[in-house]
Amino acid sequence: MKAYHVIVNPNSGNGKGLPVQKKVQEYLESRGIAAHFYFTEKAGDAREMAKNLVPETVKVLGMIGGDGTYNEVLNGMTPGAYPLAVIPAGTGNDFCRMLAIDSWKKATETMIEGTCRMVDYGEVNQHRFLNVYSTGLDAAIANQANQWKGRYPGAFLYTAALIRQVRRMKRYSYEVIWDHGTYKGEGILVAIGNGAYYGGGMKISPRASLFDGKLDVCLLKPLSPWKLLLLFPTVFMGKHLSFQEIIYVQTKQVRLKVQEEVCAMNMDGEIYEAVQLDVSLVTGKLALMIPKD
């Protein structure tokens, strides 16, 4: 018999995961709904837990955590084998923001009463991502934010990390090839979005949709630190596309090569290292519970 299963990262969001789990469990019990809860202890556990679930027993798999937890689950499961449901308990909760899920209660109601839709997800060098893959300044900011978790709250954490990293801003030599174009030259960052938000509410890919079969590529060319600080607030509203230093395209595939020995990459909030990336979109293969209209 199929049942609700929930993977919980108790340490996500500086310890938000466990209190959220207790509220979710109490709410489900108040409605007479049983669920199986699994608690991670270290990085990689969520991936293994998802991998070991028997699809025939899963009605919906809930995920309590942040974008990094969702990414682990996506890379452990077989996409489409059962629906996923996101329950925000992270630092930025950017993917939940894309779905207009702003509380544990709305997320739990969506898990049990929402609409199941088939959505897109990305693949990069044989790894899946749900939200945004990026490199350059924003990866440095994400890395700084990860180091400072617990020191600053929510979106301010990423703002503080930005201010710190702007003083160390580095230019990278990029070669970016998409369906109908190429950019070869210096840049500050490249963000490839399936989702719209990252970094605690920055709308880096304002035209992104989980249903359109397209990746949104945002490249920032070199600019002064002062102009970057002028541009930065506009990203939260998705108004940065008017700046001449921005290249923004929609595509199904992207090849990104960084002319450095190694470069930090930010995949759904987690930091990796790579030199060349082949990014593609898998269209409409992931079952996801979304709020009813």
Rank of each mutant, 00 (worst) to 15 (best):
residue 237 M to Y: 14
residue 169 M to A: 14
residue 17 G to H: 09
residue 262 V to K: 13
residue 211 F to Y: 12
residue 129 F to R: 02
residue 219 L to E: 01
residue 186 E to A: 09
residue 69 T to I: 06
residue 5 H to G: 02
residue 251 T to A: 03
residue 291 P to S: 11
residue 127 H to T: 07
residue 267 M to R: 12
residue 255 R to Y: 02
residue 30 S to T: 07
residue 276 Q to T: 10
residue 12 S to W: 04
residue 256 L to D: 02
residue 68 G to I: 03
residue 63 M to K: 00
residue 139 A to P: 03
residue 117 R to P: 02
residue 15 G to L: 02
residue 43 A to S: 10
residue 187 G to A: 00
residue 261 E to T: 12
residue 21 Q to G: 09
residue 69 T to Q: 09
residue 25 Q to K: 13
residue 276 Q to E: 14
residue 64 I to A: 07
residue 69 T to R: 04
residue 249 V to M: 08
residue 81 A to W: 09
residue 247 I to C: 13
residue 126 Q to H: 14
residue 51 K to P: 03
residue 285 K to S: 14
residue 151 R to G: 04
residue 10 P to R: 10
residue 267 M to C: 11
residue 80 G to Q: 12
residue 163 I to E: 14
residue 86 V to L: 15
residue 42 K to H: 07
residue 76 G to P: 07
residue 176 V to F: 01
residue 15 G to P: 06
residue 4 Y to D: 10
residue 229 L to R: 12
residue 214 K to N: 08
residue 117 R to M: 15
residue 24 V to Y: 03
residue 289 M to C: 13
residue 30 S to E: 10
residue 136 G to V: 08
residue 232 F to G: 00
residue 142 A to T: 14
residue 206 P to L: 06
residue 267 M to S: 12
residue 255 R to H: 05
residue 281 L to A: 06
residue 206 P to M: 06
residue 20 V to N: 04
residue 62 G to I: 02
residue 278 D to Q: 09
residue 44 G to H: 06
residue 270 E to T: 08
residue 282 V to E: 12
residue 148 W to E: 11
residue 125 N to T: 08
residue 30 S to D: 13
residue 272 Y to L: 12
residue 188 I to L: 15
residue 79 P to M: 05
residue 290 I to N: 05
residue 290 I to M: 15
residue 66 G to Q: 06
residue 218 C to Q: 03
residue 204 I to P: 06
residue 253 Q to P: 00
residue 92 G to Q: 05
residue 87 I to W: 05
residue 212 D to F: 03
residue 142 A to N: 05
residue 1 M to E: 12
residue 189 L to Y: 13
residue 147 Q to T: 11
residue 251 T to E: 01
residue 202 M to A: 02
residue 106 K to Q: 15
residue 190 V to D: 03
residue 250 Q to V: 05
residue 58 V to I: 01
residue 247 I to S: 12
residue 287 A to Y: 01
residue 260 E to I: 00
residue 236 F to W: 13
residue 214 K to Q: 13
residue 189 L to A: 11
residue 179 D to C: 01
residue 40 T to M: 07
residue 66 G to K: 00
residue 49 M to P: 00
residue 147 Q to I: 09
residue 226 W to Q: 08
residue 158 Y to W: 07
residue 139 A to L: 05
residue 118 M to G: 06
residue 244 Q to H: 15
residue 248 Y to T: 09
residue 152 Y to P: 00
residue 74 L to E: 08
residue 183 Y to S: 06
residue 70 Y to F: 13
residue 264 A to M: 08
residue 239 K to H: 11
residue 6 V to T: 09
residue 179 D to V: 06
residue 59 K to V: 00
residue 101 I to T: 10
residue 202 M to I: 06
residue 64 I to V: 12
residue 176 V to P: 00
residue 33 I to N: 03
residue 135 T to Q: 07
residue 92 G to A: 15
residue 46 A to S: 06
residue 268 D to F: 04
residue 228 L to W: 04
residue 214 K to Y: 08
residue 245 E to D: 13
residue 157 L to K: 01
residue 293 D to C: 10
residue 241 L to K: 05
residue 41 E to G: 15
